[in-house]
Design a protein around this nucleic acid. Structure first.
Lengths: 346, 346
DNA sequence: ATCCGAACTGAAAACGGTTTCAGTTTTGAG
DNA sequence: CTCAAAACTGAAACCGTTTTCAGTTCGGAT
């Protein structure tokens, strides 16, 4: 009478040893059936597989990871998951990782440097074999920890500018210039900016700097009532636009450095019966899928979020397995001209 | 001269043994400093902590998990991460887990039962201490594996209806009826349906069934050209609406069983210069944050995605730590009446 | 000084696998 | 049939922690 029949449920978790005993082989053989089935004779393999199946046996990945020194997990730290631009990048990373047999351990930092540091530590403890980080700017201490622990990492969303720190990104500064140039070419001079908080967020900072550089180049004096730095929420875009429209000199165009805020801003214009783009132009950034379902459709900068995620994951895994640091890569962005941008009113 | 000075980087990862050696204590003491600092004298503790700090030492969570039989990880399987309704639920789960010192291992099933089964296995291998699953309907085999491995799990998004399988959910059937009743009370009788694929998706199925039940109760014969079952994409909602409007008898209202498709449908109406709600009413489902930034604002069913996620995580962790299965819970939903629903045209 | 309990520390046995190395079978050619 | 090579299998040494149990040290009361 064998110890584990079809019906009864073992109190303790079944281990490779029970399987070995029941199949009358050594644990080494069971391990091989699971990892290198070609090294085991057909007869033995089938027998062992049957026992495994019958007992619903699932290997202990912790023990495996410990013994093999491979966790087959990569870490991903992003500021938020609710912004669909990060969601799609995350999805792509998941997919790339899955394809290569890796899992993704996700950390959400909520735009906090402290939280990010804590997450890096947590993920290191979980023995991720590599890490994808959002943005390039962070306390040096974090990079030190990473290097001391010899964990490969890739920076995404912002070029790294450091030869030892590969990145897969697009150039936020140039991309924001693209948006600004578009408005300037249409004839706008008084241009407002609504952007995300620039603390612990080098992407938002780069975009803001591009705005300021273009305005300076235009010879337009800096007007504090034209610049709003807010959280990434629809409502923040809306209230920023609200205040901008109440200012002494309304801008003829507003560059929203992300689509979330742009959508809020657009709603505010609609509520005020302000014609877009005839009375005011809006250019967004991110080109969220939703943006072309708005009315009017949003002019925006399309960023390669999925592609970036996919590439980052692939390069990271190549690095992990090939031990050779990948090249950084800068991905192109495009201005998608749609219905919210036009020449200024006379 | 100590073995690991400030500057040099050890080739191999530093373990608790090196720390113990350098601090001239046993590994047991180092372990205690890390896990039960109150059991160690101040002098010893400080000394050990200094060595840990100096070496950027990070514990091996795999070894910890193996030895302590606690992974402090829970698994979450959702169909997609790009739909912001799942993203916000995921965010809430992350937060609840984090607060209690757990990590979340995320699996994206892409609405595939096969993929879900594979993910359950993967997560079990990763020794998640509990699991949150989306929906209640799946092959019995999966539940067996879960039970055999004694892994607590909570079902979310759809009531379980099984006493041994706790769920934190809202009632999709009743929620969909709420939407239908709203339209019926406004005077609509010829109502269309656009919903998600109902294979391997009991939520979508429940919503569709509610639609059909209400239509039957209304005595309206079933019209196949009024029902569209499509993928969860804006464009699918749009093309479904397109075809519905080309049908022999246009509906006076359309129930979209999710906001994504509703947004697509709304865009189609706008492109055709069809007045909403004067010529056609639309009711959505999910009440995405974006839905009130549309024009007109979308009438929708608000579902407690975050609350549900948070509660599910809390209950799961309570179960893990208290060993006692929690009660199922049904959360209320609300109809948010906004601008896309009104009485039918005369 | 002496003694006692409390506080602290260390040795060693798990935890559940992988992997090396050496034996034991098979296989196939001569 | 013989024998070497190839294919297969098992014993045992890890992997880096936690935790129990027993020993040691310390502080304070006598």
């Amino acid at each position: 009478m064998s110890s584990a029949g079809k019906g009864n449920i073992p109190k303790e978790r079944v281990t490779i040893r029970e399987i070995a005993a029941e199949a009358r082989v050594s644990i080494a053989t069971v391990s091989r059936v699971l990892n290198h089935p070609e090294q085991v004779s057909d007869t033995t393999r089938k027998a062992v597989e049957a026992v495994i199946e019958r007992n619903h046996f699932v290997m202990d990945g912790m023990a495996t990871a410990l013994a093999s020194k491979r966790s087959r997990t990569i870490g991903l730290i992003i500021p938020t998951i609710t912004n669909s631009i990060y969601a799609s990048s995350t999805q792509a990373i998941q997919k790339a990782a899955q394809e290569q047999g890796y899992s993704v351990l996700l950390g959400v930092s909520e735009f906090s440097a402290r939280e990010e540091a804590a997450l890096v530590r947590r993920l290191l403890e979980r023995r991720v074999e590599g890490l994808i980080l959002t943005g390039a700017e962070r306390p040096e201490r974090i990079y030190e920890t990473l290097e001391r622990n010899r964990v490969p990492f890739i920076l995404a969303w912002q070029p790294s500018g450091h030869p030892e720190r590969p990145s897969v990104a697009f150039d936020n500064y140039q991309a924001a210039r693209l948006a600004m140039r578009h408005l300037i070419q249409l004839g706008h001079r008084r241009i407002g900016l609504i952007c995300g908080r620039t603390t612990a967020n080098d992407r938002a900072l780069a975009r803001r700097q591009a705005y300021e550089a273009e305005m300076t180049a235009l010879g337009v004096p800096r007007r504090e009532w034209l610049v709003f730095e807010r959280d990434f929420e629809f409502i923040e875009g809306r209230t920023a636009m609200h205040r901008m429209l109440d200012a002494r000199f309304r801008p003829t165009a507003v560059f929203c450095a992300n689509d979330i805020q742009a959508i809020g801003a657009l709603a505010e214009c609609r509520d005020r019966d302000l014609a877009v783009p005839d009375e005011i132009s809006i250019v967004g950034f991110d080109d969220l899928p939703i943006s072309q379902y708005l009315s009017p459709q949003l002019t925006s900068i399309r960023v390669p979020a999925s592609q970036m995620g996919f590439l980052a994951a692939e390069k990271l895994i190549a690095w992990i397995e090939g031990k050779v640091m990948p090249e950084s890569e800068i991905l192109p962005v495009t201005l998608i001209r749609r219905g919210t941008s036009g020449p200024p009113a006379k």
